[in-house]
């Protein structure tokens, strides 16, 4: 395990324990590695890179309970990024667009790219399609930074309902991204 991976893993483990600022740093670092990793592999589809970075970040977040602390972080992240990448390539044109074999796990953290292009797909717009009981908690908590209690007050929902709303809303967002692929 290299040093970068050790650092990232440490941040994720703290995040999984409830440390939001460590988790924030983890996602931020991860996004640069994902961007570098995906940009190389999507050399012919540069406009899709940022969308896929976002989609993968959302997947990592939604599936973070599937990370096993005994497991190398590279293997977990690589499998998620690869799953999302293959999904995209299958929709686009097929595997021949891959410049590199996908099986080299070591590479996920070998590259990083801080230069975020604009995403083509606006997650903000997709968010608007969610039902209120999911959208409002997400907007209040995740975008405006309110606490659960504050978001509950602002929306008139119970705290439990706010938490469930955020959780289901983020899953639904991933679902919307997917159905958007299928229709478009």
């Amino acid at each position: 395990m290299n040093e970068r991976e050790t650092q990232l893993r440490d941040l994720l483990v703290r995040g999984l324990g409830g440390d939001a600022s460590a988790y924030h740093v983890f996602l931020k670092d991860l996004s640069t590695h994902l961007r570098g990793f995906l940009r190389v592999r999507l050399a012919r589809l540069p406009d899709d890179v940022e969308d896929l970075v976002q989609e993968t970040l959302l997947a990592v977040h939604n599936q973070r309970h599937t990370y096993d602390l005994d497991q190398p972080l590279t293997a977990w992240i690589h499998a998620i990024a690869r799953y999302k990448l293959v999904d995209l390539l299958r929709r686009r044109a097929g595997r021949e667009m891959l410049n590199d074999p996908l099986d080299d796990e070591l590479e996920v953290f070998a590259v990083s790219d801080h230069d975020a292009a604009d995403a083509r797909r606006d997650l903000g717009k997709l968010l608007e399609q969610l039902p209120e009981r999911q959208r409002l908690p997400i907007v209040h908590m995740k975008l405006e930074g309110l606490s659960v209690a504050e978001a509950a007050r602002a929306t008139g929902m119970s705290e439990a309902a706010v938490k469930v709303g955020v959780h289901r809303g983020l899953k639904a967002l991933a679902e919307l991204i997917r159905s958007g692929h299928e229709n478009g």
Binding site: D19, L58, A116, I138
Partner: peptide, 23 residues
């Protein structure tokens, strides 16, 4: 939505996650 905004949004409430829930 910018990627940084998405990250802030995801990180905003990082509830603790129980380990090995699959078992």
């Amino acid at each position: 939505m910018k990627t940084d905004d998405l990250i802030a949004m995801l990180a905003n409430d990082a509830d603790a996650v129980a380990p090995q829930v699959w078992r």
